[in-house]
Structures are given as structure tokens and as C-alpha cells.
Design a protein around this nucleic acid. Structure first.
Lengths: 184, 184
DNA sequence: CGGCAGGTCTTGTCATTGACAAGATGCCTC
DNA sequence: GAGGCATCTTGTCAATGACAAGACCTGCCG
């Protein structure tokens, strides 16, 4: 549709995701993205007001994809939802990094807020559609959000030969089970 | 000791903490910090190699303070350790923001790694000094790390009239207790 | 007492960046 | 076919991080 580029907005978002995956969300440069897309250094301005606007779009897309992933879980027991959360985070590291880094986005952006709320609603709903009580829902969210964060910060990694999904399953299984007192 | 400034290194770190609390760790500017400290724009270079070096120092200090806070917990049940973790995060938001934001620091800095490991050891130790099993320790760490992150990202806030400590206690109590099936 | 060595800070400079202003270019509608 | 508009370009500016070279103070050695 646009005359030079089939879809510059999408192209810039994709370039941003690549750049974030390579050097982190802090290091992205609008001019670098424009260069990779083959357009001039001011082209991104019209699609995203400024750099924060571009990252806001990435975050909103991330929350939407996360909500989609959660909605797609058929067995809506918390452990399965939690596994889906962690799998999303590790398979969309660029999105998740922007989503969880404060100060990068316009926090009051309507599209962003709406997407966040949709994901939140999905997480807080029980298998039969009832709402979980606050502390339980928050504990579950904290658990999977924290595991995702630790994985992406590199403070934790799955055992060799194992994978993220197995790790997430083991961890979510600890919620609501008695704590074993010893190693073993 | 230094001739112009009693302790420029500490002054810059404190200025950085203030700036991070105000505008987030991404927005800090070395030149701005130098201005606040009343020194020239190149003064910070000698104390911290570069901007990343300064943030690395902040992160290392943060992990050390966290380890100190965890070591100071006398009742070493996980719930109390977890409460201390969350209280640290919310009372040292600037430190914690740098600690949990990837790409800001030299991840392989020896002092940083050592401080991280000290905090990790403290968290993974049971009341009697035995090690927790991996999944349990990781679930606990994920839980409190995630709650801290959600609080600092502004995605969650304590109920009015309540406080962070009560919220943390309610959430850590869900680890190893049966999940209530319904609200109330 | 004199100077010398090194850590500390300053001045000067450069490429890069984000943001803005103004203009060019192609497409669509009336 | 002529205006109107979204899209993109060129040009510019202040701010920034990093680096180089030099000035300054301190403390130590002879």
C-alpha cells in the first residue's frame, strides 16, 4: 500500500525484534532499524511517534500474543497455563524483554493497557470460568513471571538434556503441594 | 582522600540511584550524574570504565545488600526469607531495577557474579543449613522474584490499607499449601 | 628541601543518536 | 486532472558516550 515499502511498520517491528534479541531492548537505535529496513533515518517517526512509541507497539504486540497463547490452552488448570506463560516468554524473548522492562514504553498507551488486561484476565480464570482468589492468582502469576524473568536474565537455565517446558512443569507443580523438607 | 571530592565514586553511585529512581535505569546519563556531582563530564570515566561499568557497580552493590538482608533473617523458614526478598526489592527499587534488567551490566564482572552467588546460596539454604531440592528452591526464588518484578513494573499493587510485607506473606504462604478451589 | 610518580580530574574533540522542521513524492478521490 | 493526504526524504540541532591529552594535587623518595 505505501509506495516505497510494502509495509514499513511491520518491517520496522521485525527489525526491532531482531535487534532486541541481539543486543537487548536498551541498545536499539531507530536509525539502525531504518538502515536495516533500507529507509531514511526519519521514516520511523511517522509510524511510531518516537522510540518509546515503537517499543510500546512491541510490548502491546507481546501482551496480545501472550493472551492468545493462554487462551489457546485447552486444559485450563493453572499448571498448564503457567507452562504456556513460561514457554511464551522463552520463545518470544524480545517481546518479553520489552514487556517486563519499565521505562521503555508509554505505560498509559490504551492498546498496551488493553492487551495487558486481556492477558491478566486469562491468567486469573479457573478451569470452570470462576475467578481465583487474589492471593492464589497473584502467587501463580508471580511464580511463572519470576521463572520467566530468571531464565531470561540468565540466572537460571534448564538442566542439560531437559527443556524449559519440563522445568516449568516441575516448578508450577510446587504451588499448592507440601514442601519436601529435604533434598532428594 | 581524592583532592576535589571526598569520595566521587560514592557520590556518583548515589546520584545514579536517585536518577534511576526518578527516570528508570535506561534514562541515566553519565554527564547528568557528573553535573549533579559538580564535576566535569569525563570525571566518571576513571572510577567506572564506562556507563555499563557504573551500572555494574550498582548491581553488584544491590546483590550484596540483598545477600546481607537475607542473611539477617533469623527465622530461616522460606516464607520469612521470601518476605525479606520482596521487601528488599521494594525498598531498593533503583538497585533492583538494575539487577533485573538484562543488557545494562557487564554480566561477567567478577564482583557482580560473586555477589549474585552469595545471595543465591542464602536463598537456597534450609533453616537447618541443608540445601533445598532444586525444583523447590527454584519455585521459591521464582515466586518472590516474580512478585517483586510485578510490583516494580506497576502491574500489581498492595491493597489500600495493606502493605508489601503483608502481600508477600500472603503469596509466599501459597507455596506448599493446597490450592483453594474457589474464591473466598 | 626538591622533584618525581601516579592517581584524580579537566578541557577538547568526534561519531552517533533522537527529535524536529520543511520539502519531495507517489497515490486516491472528486 | 487537480487538489489532498499519507508517506518518505533531506537537513539540522542539542545531547550523549567515549576517547585523547594535559593539568593538578598528593605523597613518597632521595
Amino acid at each position: 500500500m505505501p509506495y516505497h515499502h510494502g509495509d514499513l511498520r511491520r518491517t520496522l517491528l521485525d527489525a526491532a525484534l531482531v535487534a532486541i534479541a541481539e543486543h537487548g531492548p536498551v541498545a536499539v537505535s531507530l536509525r539502525e532499524l531504518a538502515r536495516r529496513a533500507g529507509v531514511s533515518h526519519a521514516a520511523p517517526t511517522h509510524h511510531f511517534r518516537d522510540k518509546t512509541g515503537l517499543l510500546t507497539a512491541v510490548a502491546a504486540e507481546g501482551w496480545t500474543l501472550l493472551a492468545d497463547a493462554l487462551d489457546a490452552v485447552t486444559d485450563r488448570e493453572f499448571s498448564e497455563m503457567g507452562v504456556a506463560y513460561v514457554v511464551f516468554a522463552t520463545t518470544h524473548p524480545a517481546h518479553f524483554a520489552v514487556m517486563r522492562t519499565p521505562g521503555l514504553v508509554h505505560a498509559d498507551d490504551p492498546a498496551l493497557v488493553a492487551a495487558q488486561q486481556r492477558a491478566g484476565r486469562s491468567l486469573q480464570t479457573e478451569p470452570d470460568g470462576a475467578a481465583r482468589d487474589r492471593a492464589t492468582a497473584l502467587a501463580g502469576w508471580s511464580l511463572v513471571h519470576g521463572l520467566s524473568a530468571l531464565l531470561l536474565e540468565g540466572l537460571v537455565a534448564p538442566d542439560p538434556g531437559s527443556d524449559v517446558e519440563a522445568l516449568a512443569r516441575a516448578v508450577t507443580g510446587r504451588l499448592g503441594r507440601p514442601l519436601p523438607r529435604r533434598q532428594g
